[in-house]
């Protein structure tokens, strides 16, 4: 498996930091930069680098309120108005597929979070691209109906998006299987990181990406316009997404999706997924477990039998 250009991706993500912090993190050894998963900035604290071994402070650094504002300004290209909707959901997608998580004092109107005042901490998650990761699960995703629809489960930061991206790439490229046309509803730009109409991350040669719009709209647009054989979507969270997926599944399209959770039982507790599972939409569940750099993939059918 190849964690392609991990240090370079880290460096690009670090370009969002103010100069004094950027110089420090870009001065870290290449190996450490390649393994870094997140940069965590908390007001009045040192900058922390999250690696599979845990969070390590960068001695001699101290994050100020101005630093946090600068990161947000750079992440939004001096155009906060373009990311307000994302701020309301607690994160901003950054060119390159990175994700900036936000924390601060909420401004609430009508029971809804409308903005954040006084940022208190930020988490910059570096996009990961590990080619060949899909090989660990791909042969087990075939059933009687051919390629089954797949739901990937793991706790936050477990590697769902990384696995999904490589599955998309492998299916689209036809690695160890006939190539397929894949449609990706990439609402937050984390799967393909499209910039200027071209994906910055490798999602394969037969992949069409609909980015920047809600997942349900993206799915239906792809379904109507691009004649996909496989539809992929990251982090299903809204009833509208579920209803779009049900519609797509009814058209004979294979679905690839991810969700937060650790077991099949976790899904049963959530009404959103209960319907999808009850209707047998997903023929395969991939549960990612593991700590540090170690990842284990358990593949089961929709009823929990190992595959």
């Amino acid at each position: 498996m190849e964690n392609a250009g991990a240090a370079e991706r880290f460096d690009r993500a670090a370009e969002l930091l103010p100069g004094h912090l950027r110089r420090r993190v870009q001065g870290l050894p290449r190996e450490k930069r390649a393994r870094a998963e997140e940069l965590r900035l908390r007001r009045g604290r040192p900058l922390f680098v999250l690696t599979p071994q845990g969070e390590e402070p960068l001695e001699g650094t101290s994050v100020t309120a101005q630093d946090l504002e600068t990161v947000l300004e750079l992440a939004s290209a001096s155009s906060v108005h373009t990311v307000m909707e994302q701020i309301r959901h607690g994160f901003v997608s950054v060119p390159g597929g990175h994700r900036l998580g936000l924390c601060g004092t909420g401004v609430v109107e009508g029971g809804q979070l409308v903005n954040l005042r006084e940022l208190s901490s930020l988490s910059l998650r570096v996009a990961r691209e590990i080619r060949g990761l899909a090989r660990a699960v791909l042969p087990r995703l075939w059933g009687e109906r051919g390629l089954e629809s797949v739901l990937i489960l793991s706790p936050p930061g477990g590697g769902k998006t990384t696995l999904l991206r490589d599955l998309i790439r492998a299916l689209s490229a036809g690695e160890d299987c006939p190539p397929r046309r894949v449609g990706v509803a990439d609402e937050r730009g984390e799967l393909a990181a499209v910039a200027g109409g071209e994906p910055a991350l490798d999602v394969g040669p037969r992949t069409d990406v609909m980015s920047g719009c809600p997942k349900d709209i993206g799915l239906m647009t792809l379904l109507r316009g691009m004649n996909p054989q496989v539809l992929a979507v990251d982090e299903v969270t809204a009833p509208e997404d579920v209803s779009a997926m049900l519609q797509a599944a009814g058209c004979g399209v294979t679905l690839l999706a991810t969700a937060h959770g650790g077991t099949l039982r976790d899904l049963d507790r959530r009404p959103l997924y209960r319907e999808l599972m009850a209707r047998g939409v997903f023929g395969r569940l991939v549960v990612i477990r593991g700590t540090g750099e170690e990842r284990r993939y358990t593949v089961t059918d929709g009823e929990g039998r190992p595959c």
Partner: peptide, 10 residues
Amino acid sequence: TLGRYDARTQ
């Protein structure tokens, strides 16, 4: 104000 607030405020 530019670039730092929501579209309505700007």
